[in-house]
Simulated scan of single mutants.
Amino acid sequence: MTDLTGEAALIDQHCHGVVTTDLDRLAFEALLTEATRATPDRSRFDSMLGLAVRRWCAPVLGLPAHVGPDEYLERRAALGWWEASARLLRAAGVTDWLVDAGFAPVALTGLPEVADLAGGTAHEIVRLETVAERVAGLAGSAEEFAADLETELHRAAAGAVGLKSVAAYRGGLDLPARPPSAAALSAAVGRWFAVGGRLTDPLVVGWLVHLGVRVGAEFGLPLQLHTGFGDDDLRLHHADPSLLTDFLAATRDSGVTVVLLHCWPFHRQAAYLAHVFGHVVVDVGLAVPHVGARSGAVLAELLELAPFGAVCFSSDGYGLPELHYLGAWLWRRELGRLLDAWIADDVLTCADAERLVAAVARDNALRTYSRVSE
């Protein structure tokens, strides 16, 4: 790993908290995968992510590299979840964590605990759908819902560094170029209220994302969008960021930066969108720990077309601090190896490489999330 990346302090532009209990093997393995059901004859340690945990997380916890899963988990239990989490998060070399706390099917640390464990600063990312569903539970009509939600989003945005939508999970990324009319929105919200449950109506979701654009512009906040792979609640072909082309064309002069998260296996499509739209920022956060030693190939493919000023770092660590750590460690290792190869092949100079690392590690995030530096 080149010194260019080894000492770079990172801003993690998208992550979640970590679990607040000690985990047995079954519970730990459940967090090593995007699958929501266990397969008894298929250990999640037998994966690129599982190999990465045993190879690179084990030494952080005081174990030999490549230790077996049972020994790794015994050591983790002996340390306790707090100490193990603190060691891994602090070893990541991240100064600022941008935390989406809007998704927590299991108990996770909040922002103050993330900051305490990691020895850095935690900032809030507001998930639009979570706010919308909370407001819907209290609203008496479609008109009241729309007004109350805008008020609540303004309140939430005042203390946040960014907004986020999971529209990819709620019908897909084929978002409308324009928000719907008030009449169409009222009818759609009425249908949603009649059925109940979480927000999945595509018209309401499209309106919500456009509301996020408007509120983001008012407060100077970027809008993050989940793209690419995730758990099995997702339909992957609906999460292709190229589906956002009309939406991005319509919002290019809105004043909002749109952040495409994760992106794999559509990271080349995302790179193209960042190439043609100046308000688009991309990362490959979730993919890096999951593909492990293959993450260098993913980073190289992203950088084929994405402007270097449009790429940020994130881990999308969720539940296991191992994911936060590996997101950072593998990013440093694989980007460093890629840049070493480019320098050796006279593709770029050391000065060029230093600027690229500084941009992706921190500078692009500081420009995108202006409140982080306040």
Rank of each mutant, 00 (worst) to 15 (best):
A168G: 14
S186C: 10
G162P: 02
V161N: 04
R252E: 14
H210F: 06
G206M: 04
G206H: 08
P176M: 11
W192G: 02
S186W: 05
L243T: 02
T151Q: 09
H237W: 09
L236I: 13
H237C: 01
A146F: 09
D148H: 10
F193P: 00
E144D: 15
R191D: 15
E218Q: 14
R155Y: 14
G162K: 04
E144I: 06
A158T: 10
L203R: 14
G162E: 04
D253C: 11
F219T: 03
L248G: 13
S242D: 15
L163K: 06
A184N: 10
P241S: 01
T200K: 07
W192I: 03
A146M: 04
H210T: 09
L149H: 13
Y169Q: 00
A167T: 00
A168V: 08
L244G: 12
F145N: 10
H154Q: 14
L163S: 05
R198W: 00
L211D: 05
G230M: 05
W192P: 01
L149Q: 10
A160I: 09
R170M: 09
L211H: 06
V204K: 03
L236N: 07
S242R: 15
L175Q: 01
A239N: 04
G230E: 05
K164E: 13
A147L: 14
A183P: 08
A250Q: 06
G172L: 08
G220D: 10
L153N: 13
D253R: 15
S242F: 15
G212H: 04
T200E: 13
K164A: 15
R214D: 14
H237N: 07
G171L: 05
F193M: 12
V213K: 12
F219M: 06
L175H: 02
F229P: 00
L153I: 13
P179Q: 07
S141V: 03
D233W: 02
R170S: 12
P176R: 06
V209G: 05
P202N: 09
A188F: 09
A249F: 09
P176V: 11
D174I: 01
D201N: 15
E218C: 03
Y169P: 00
V215R: 05
G162T: 09
V204R: 06
A160V: 09
G212E: 03
L221D: 13
V204Q: 05
R235M: 11
L248Y: 11
L225F: 05
V209N: 08
L149F: 10
D231W: 02
V166W: 01
L203H: 03
D240I: 02
G190K: 11
R235L: 13
F219C: 03
L248Q: 13
V215Q: 10
L211F: 07
W207R: 08
G220S: 13
R155F: 12
L248T: 13
K164H: 14
T151V: 10
A187L: 15
R170H: 11
L211V: 06
D232C: 00
D240V: 04
A147R: 15
A167F: 05
L173D: 08
E152I: 00
D240Y: 01
L221T: 13
A146G: 06
L234Y: 08
D240F: 02
A249T: 15
L211E: 03
H210S: 06
S186Q: 14
